[in-house]
Design a binder for these strands. Sequence first.
DNA 1: CATGAATGAGAGTTCATTCAT
DNA 2: CATGAATGAACTCTCATTCAT
Lengths: 210, 210, 210, 210
Amino acid sequence: MTSGAILDAAEGVFAEQGLQGARMEDIAVRAGVAVGTLYNYFSDRQTLLAALQASREQQLFGLIDAALAAEGDPAFEALLTRTLRALLGHFDAHQAFFGMLVQGDSGPERAEVMCAVRRTVGELFARFDRLMARGVDAGVLRPADAPLYAAAVFGLLKGVALQEHITSAAAGVAERAETVARLFLDGARARCPSVTTSPVPTNPSPKDTP
Amino acid sequence: MTSGAILDAAEGVFAEQGLQGARMEDIAVRAGVAVGTLYNYFSDRQTLLAALQASREQQLFGLIDAALAAEGDPAFEALLTRTLRALLGHFDAHQAFFGMLVQGDSGPERAEVMCAVRRTVGELFARFDRLMARGVDAGVLRPADAPLYAAAVFGLLKGVALQEHITSAAAGVAERAETVARLFLDGARARCPSVTTSPVPTNPSPKDTP
Amino acid sequence: MTSGAILDAAEGVFAEQGLQGARMEDIAVRAGVAVGTLYNYFSDRQTLLAALQASREQQLFGLIDAALAAEGDPAFEALLTRTLRALLGHFDAHQAFFGMLVQGDSGPERAEVMCAVRRTVGELFARFDRLMARGVDAGVLRPADAPLYAAAVFGLLKGVALQEHITSAAAGVAERAETVARLFLDGARARCPSVTTSPVPTNPSPKDTP
Amino acid sequence: MTSGAILDAAEGVFAEQGLQGARMEDIAVRAGVAVGTLYNYFSDRQTLLAALQASREQQLFGLIDAALAAEGDPAFEALLTRTLRALLGHFDAHQAFFGMLVQGDSGPERAEVMCAVRRTVGELFARFDRLMARGVDAGVLRPADAPLYAAAVFGLLKGVALQEHITSAAAGVAERAETVARLFLDGARARCPSVTTSPVPTNPSPKDTP
DNA sequence: CATGAATGAGAGTTCATTCAT
DNA sequence: CATGAATGAACTCTCATTCAT
């Protein structure tokens, strides 16, 4: 559908030119339509941006919620990894959307969109908070820093993405999900060799039960 | 000096209006000079932005390198925390600059600035990589994920900042540095009670005390 | 018929939005058809406007000529009043058309329409001139200002309409016709009581009754 | 001054192209400045139009009030003629402004300007009403139609202007003022030869006092 | 060097017109 | 013939940049 093609094109152009630098004509060209056609579907630039945000938000939460809906009550680590995979997959496909989620600059006219973005990030964090609470309940996570876990995972995702952006080396979604989960769960500190950090361990700290 | 006042004003306006939304006149007004005066010091918008980036980069590396220049060879954890404090302090004072470091959007004309930014992030990562290498050499960090540590710390910083942005709760520089260091080093996983994660522990490897 | 519905709709929209502000889509909506249908009946905006002008002109002259076609050779005053009634009735029903007749602005593309409008006003004036000539011949009107009479009556009509527009008070067609005829014939100057200005006086020249 | 040049240019272009058809660029070209300069003086098209209206209104009322401020208590006819001369002089110099006063079309965005115009016409009529009241008090005008006199004079002015527009024959201001005053005072009806309609007669109807 | 009015290329938006269905 | 999505030229308004004072 034309409307979808416009959103896709807008996402690409917003990602490349920035939220403020994207030109309506560029979006039209990439969508393969005339400028006027944009305005047949979205009353103005603001509305287009808002629609893009709403569309991607819906997709994202669909994926996240599907990943979180546990079938057979898996271990926390498996749940976390699966959710990270969903997030990273969406991330790769919709960089412009994630650009919005992270960008701190507002600008005068972006007020509405930024408001929606704020809400989206809030909901995303809420989902991660619930996931982390399950980890704490299961005894897998320390309760102390629980309020920071969502932000930490999100930051690690961003960090890994930035790393790849700098080194221009792209890893697969699964591999990045593993990496982020490992760093998040076990940190970087060296420990006794028996501490395994296998992807989906059945018993988190086997050394505790000799 | 006028030139410095202009850079300060530019930083503020860039932070508020975004890299692309900032208007030269707004910068002039905030700097308390006329528009024309801007062009007496910086030949155009590009140059002003580049100068801002160069200035802040110099300040940042000054702080970072001072924090890294160990007097009396402190423990890795102390070094890390001190460096994070330097980074966070600069972060708080110069949000616009960090906005550049993180923003993924380039825009057609921002090419030069983004190139410089890429280089800056690269150098920052290189310094962190060296720091992490020292941690690995000291046996404090696992060698396995070493290439990711710099990105992980940077991401955690961003995550904590985002968290505060969302919850509108501001913590002090020292506290955030502690938090990031703790999450980075030990992760979120629950362990045997003997595993202490105090800020600057004397015995970082709990396996030594069976 | 569709064509007539379009003209009616166009008249309404032109009256409300102005000759230049009326949008083709608004006309289509009011006519209850699609935009494309407009172009099945009128090749473009110009042609539609010209057709509207031609249609209303034809109607107007039909009414005027009927009013002027005296049955039984009535007195001049009666003829004048009857003609004014016809003009005012058409005026009320077709404000947009009269808007064209009075508007001084042309615009680049309105050239053709304005040319036609000029011709219409000319023909209207010609009819009024002939009417006035009959009044002069009958000894009812002074011959001196004869060339101005048509314009004077037309101006008085416009003035009365403007008055009602300002005071938002609408009078009936017959009443306005009386008023205009009275002002036109006798002016505003006070005179001896014997000077009657009854609508259709039997003896128009008071000098005959000393 | 630039601002005045812009208003003059705007007046001309609005007069030629119509209130809605005038293009900002045309105004700029006629004023001999760049488009951007228009916006240095008037924040947008609306504001420019409103400023034009306010400026011309002020000029007009200055002239009218000066004409009405009688020195030595002249006869009503002289006062009327003098006021008409002022109005016609301003009319000739500022056709666009009078176009606004008469145009009935509103359009969506012209609301503010039309509101101001309505007020202007109201004030103009109020001044004429006061003048006519003096005429009635002096016994020169019949009291019966007094509420219509202002509109009648205004209409006659418009009619004479239209007449000249149609016949492309331009008369001087003084001559037109005489004509309008004569038509307004005495109408078109023929009377006894002794009824003089000289411009400023001392005794309106000399035949009544034999 | 400071100033700020002037500039004009460029961006967002509108709307008369077309044409495949 | 009716339809209405698509088109793109044209218009309003912005803002980086210049230069006479």
